[in-house]
């Protein structure tokens, strides 16, 4: 049980670290959110699953099961809420006209896109 918990916690830490590296190294807002949105979601859910397993290490009593269920509920909530929040932030940036990064600083398509104006 604790080996599985350690594995899950390590995987969660790996995804968090990947997200932070992406956040530091990527050039603009969209790609940074792309890194942190995915990395944080999976990292946090894996860590919560690991903590729930670790909590069950002391035995399957009712109190332990209750705490583990609460941790799993937090995980489900996080799995729904974090991508939605990322989507909302990105949508707001897109609608306010932030241009994605390109190598020479010129937009590859006409910016802002025409189709966006009639929404």
């Amino acid at each position: 049980m604790s080996i599985a918990a350690i594995l899950l916690l390590s995987a969660g830490t790996f995804f968090f670290a990947t997200g932070v590296i992406g956040f530091l190294r990527f050039p603009d807002f969209y790609s940074r959110m792309h890194a942190t949105g995915k990395g944080d979601t999976l990292g946090a859910v894996l860590m919560l699953a690991g903590l729930a397993l670790y909590n069950l290490d002391g035995g399957f009593s009712l109190g332990n099961l209750l705490v583990s269920m609460k941790l799993l509920f937090i995980g489900v909530f996080w799995f729904l809420a974090n991508p939605t929040a990322t989507h909302a932030i990105l949508r707001a940036a897109f609608d306010s006209g932030l241009m994605p990064w390109t190598k020479d600083g010129k937009p590859v398509i006409e910016w802002p896109p025409k189709s966006q104006e009639d929404t």
């Binding site: 909530f77 729904l80 809420a81 989507h87 909302a88 949508r91 707001a92 609608d95 929404t119």
Partner: peptide, 21 residues
């Protein structure tokens, strides 16, 4: 000034999560 944004992802998520909240 940005207009009102109707976003189906956010609205569906909020419909799901508000009763549980």
């Amino acid at each position: 000034m940005i207009g009102q944004i109707e976003d189906v992802i956010i609205q569906t998520f909020c419909r799901l999560i508000i009763p549980f909240m």
